[in-house]
Design a protein around this nucleic acid. Sequence first.
DNA 1: GTGTCCATTTCGACG
DNA 2: CGTCGAAGTGGACAC
Lengths: 229, 229
Amino acid sequence: MRLVVARCQVDYAGRLSAHLPLATRVLMIKADGSVLVHSDGGSYKPLNWMSPPCSVREGTTDDGAIEWTVTSKATSKGEPDTLRILIEEIHHDSAHELGIDPGLQKDGVEKHLQELLADHPATLGEGLTLVRREFPTAIGPVDLMCRDANGQSVAVEIKRRGEIDGVEQLTRYLELLNRDPLLSPVRGIFAAQEIKPQARVLAEDRGIFCAVVDYDGLRGLDDPTARLF
Amino acid sequence: MRLVVARCQVDYAGRLSAHLPLATRVLMIKADGSVLVHSDGGSYKPLNWMSPPCSVREGTTDDGAIEWTVTSKATSKGEPDTLRILIEEIHHDSAHELGIDPGLQKDGVEKHLQELLADHPATLGEGLTLVRREFPTAIGPVDLMCRDANGQSVAVEIKRRGEIDGVEQLTRYLELLNRDPLLSPVRGIFAAQEIKPQARVLAEDRGIFCAVVDYDGLRGLDDPTARLF
DNA sequence: GTGTCCATTTCGACG
DNA sequence: CGTCGAAGTGGACAC
């Protein structure tokens, strides 16, 4: 890992063309050759960057300025990427040995929500029982396939935030599933921690029931000591 | 901008919980208080981070280790975010004055594609003429509204890469537009530089024509000297 | 402000 | 290895 603070200008050419005028920025060169150009604000996204695998070639221009040319090695398809960094003045330059990172451990995303609901399907509706998680169909897996107290099939689509896309997805599943005489009639439940008003309107207009899920409450139903760290 | 290279462990709690075991990493603290934790690989995305606005409080634990507590200031809705960085050993620590950045100048994204197609609608279909760009509907703007040689309305959805979502989007528009007796019947054109097979199948199954657009060719139709830099 | 849609998205899972 | 869906998505633009 090399860290450089320098007054520079940057040009990128690839899927688009982009230009950064002369200013002082942080240049981060990672061990895999990737380069990040960061300013002192914005978000975690760099102003400009080059994804690995790529290689940096260092040179000098006619007027003595330092020029880095970063080129992507293997553009599997289409456009060759190039990042050109013209350095006018270096304020800082240091290199550091970091070693490989053990990586991030996550907890709490949609997958976990799906697991919890699979263990407690009745929280979505009285008498609901699980038939299968990730129930396969020709156009993708249905998150939960259940059966209600009357034995009717119920397809459940789970999202963290319920938006219009999720309703469309469930609608496609229902349309397909209802062509199967062994399953039909299949009704739908759209389950999410939070459901956007527009998504709710669309869902209910299509006869899909909306279930707002209490993630922390569900967790409480499980063993509360069984946590990651 | 402060740059720290340190052996540290990191815990995040917010919309999810995440943990980084002890390892050497780069910590970037921006002027707005945001913090980025970078390893020596991956992409431009940090292993963990805190978005602005937030504030860093520096302290020490009972066993003498340095502890940074980063808290988000204004969580407009819901979950308070916290990033805790426990530092065991500092390898490097420097601060730099960067100043405000003039920002990135871009060229070549979907907006430009839309402009080009608006100028040359006939490349999408014989005799097509533009009625309006960003044609407003209750569920969002249609990229291009055109009329064909027979005077029939044509709704065009433009993407850089045509995927299933775009077909769904255009389908919703068409469904709505076809309820308007002044416009109906409206047909659809799905235009993209590249159209995924599944999206093409879905589109054509719904009677939507797929147009693969040659971006560079369209550019050539325009004045080739009128470019950004 | 809310809603919608794009992104040099990146990332992970699955077939 | 490609495809597909999610993201602590972030950011821009319209209403």
